[in-house]
Nucleic acid binder design. Structure first.
Length: 430
RNA sequence: UCCCCGAUAGCUCAAUUGGUAGAGCGAGCGGCUGUUAACCGCUAGGUUCGUGGUUCGAGUCCACGUCGGGGAGCCA
């Protein structure tokens, strides 16, 4: 049996087609049924007037439960009254599988309930739209780097050592030894950049942070480019270009989804280069001027980030953070040894830090000293130090958090809606 | 790890001062030819998270526990 997808109905107006999908919802009156069908590509309304079909089909429509699998045949017409803009005058309705009583109704549900039914919640139109946007963002990221001569280099998931802290690592047995799930592919990307010049990795990262907020997952996806001979300004330009390219792509390809999500697209249309660039010292001044008690040397809390990003209609780059609050591999600022050549990108509307990165230290003695100061085991980093022994060059890169970016694009409050099956503190089901 | 809030029908919630458990949605049945979270009528549906305590009497008060939500710190 041939099949037409709802997304393609516009090419079939006036023709008879067959849709294969599920019953999204049904409304009935005495002599007419409205069946809203979804097939993964969209929603379409099927109309069943009593006089158009056999008694058997009409009676069958009365009893089909929500989310039952159905195949319908009918003639396509444009109609503003129908969700999706198209409706089918149905001639036949076949039930492939009659669903049991479906737990997710059109009324409101609590987040806890929906999360425990995540495997079914994925079918709801907003969740469906979010994952379509996620798919578009992933493609935009890959296209951005591939089009600019970057090579995709996959970083390992098992690692022998921590990249930054050691307290937030997931530990696992590795034969007779121990291993950790990766927090970041960056160190490996530095090695790859010395081989290929421009590289990126894109995969999951794991952090055993006991964070109970809407901005944290224990498993999230991150894209991490790394560029040989790049200095801080190059890193900032690259991050700015990537973020613009993502917003542009979402606006270009996801209009339907943004409508479903009731996203204010003007906020995304404002995402154009150049982004404001704010020196950490000036950010401190700004916070104090706005009444936040904040001292030079500290890291921004969530309210500080929100206050800073509220000043602008587009993402803001904050650069040259104090070295003490950044990772051991950050290159110090030649103009102020207490500062580092680092940069964060803060998204607007309170979505917080979506990018963190900077220029890496390329001096062997400096790194050896830092590893010691941070109490890290030097032998675990010997391979990394080799990169400073054999043709060390200035280089830098950043990590962009996929779910935070998707949440911002979608205007969704919780990161957990931006990944198909979120992993959070104490929660690993379904 | 710390702080705040919560747990009552399948779901979302209500229950006055401590005095016999209620509604909407969903489900079932009936009605309605253009519905948009449709509407109208009827029916079924309860170990009030668990364990102890106070009381003549606990959904309600107290203690502990479990689970859920929000936030802080930390981060992407």
């Amino acid at each position: 049996m041939s099949q037409t997808y709802i997304a393609d109905l516009k090419d079939h107006v006036g023709k008879e087609v067959t849709l294969k999908g599920w019953l999204y919802k049904r409304r009935s009156s005495g002599k007419i049924h409205f069946l809203v069908v979804r097939d993964g590509t969209g929603l379409a309304q099927g109309v069943v007037p009593k006089n158009d079909v056999s008694e058997e089909v009409f009676e069958r429509c009365k009893t089909i439960a929500q989310e039952s699998a159905i195949v319908v045949r009918g003639t396509v017409a444009e109609d503003d009254r129908a969700p999706g803009g198209f409706e089918l005058r149905l001639s036949d309705v076949e039930v492939v599988h009659a669903a049991a009583e479906y737990p997710i109704t059109p009324k409101e549900h609590s987040t806890g309930f929906l999360m425990s039914h995540r495997h079914l919640w994925l079918r709801s139109s907003k969740q469906h739209a979010v994952l379509r946007v996620r798919g578009a963002v992933i493609r935009a990221i890959r296209d951005f780097f591939d089009d600019r001569g970057f090579l995709l280099v996959d970083a390992p998931v098992f690692t022998p050592n921590a990249c930054e802290g050691t307290t937030t690592l997931f530990e696992t047995k590795y034969f007779d030894d121990r291993a950790y799930l990766t927090q970041s592919g960056q160190l490996y990307m530095e090695a790859a950049a010395m081989a290929h010049g421009k590289v990126y990795c894109f995969g999951p990262a794991f952090r055993a942070e006991k964070s109970k907020t809407r901005r944290h997952l224990t498993e999230f996806w991150m894209v991490e480019p790394e560029v040989a001979y790049a200095e801080l300004d190059d890193v900032m330009d690259l991050a700015e270009g990537l973020v613009c390219s993502i917003a542009e792509r979402v606006l270009d390809r996801c209009q339907e989804e943004l409508k479903t999500l009731e996203r204010d697209v003007s906020r995304l249309e404002a995402v154009k280069a150049p982004f404001p660039r704010l020196h950490y010292d000036d950010a401190v001044k700004l916070l104090n001027d706005k009444g936040n008690d904040f001292e030079w040397g500290g890291d921004f809390g969530a309210p500080d980030e929100t206050l800073i990003s509220e000043q602008y209609d587009r993402p803001v780059l904050v650069h040259r953070f104090p070295a003490a609050i950044k990772a051991f591999y950050m290159k110090p600022d030649p103009e102020n040894e207490k500062a580092s050549l680092s940069v964060d990108v803060l998204a607007p509307e309170g979505y917080g830090e979506i990018v963190g990165g900077g220029q890496r230290a390329d001096d062997l003695e400096f790194l050896e000293r830092k590893i010691e100061e941070h109490g890290l085991p030097q032998d675990a980093f010997e391979w990394y130090l080799d990169l400073r022994r054999y043709g060390s060059v200035p280089h830098g890169g950043f990590g962009l958090g996929l779910e935070r970016t998707v949440a911002w694009m979608c205007g969704v409050e919780h990161l957990r809606e931006c990944i198909p099956f979120p992993r959070m503190l104490y929660k690993i089901y379904p």
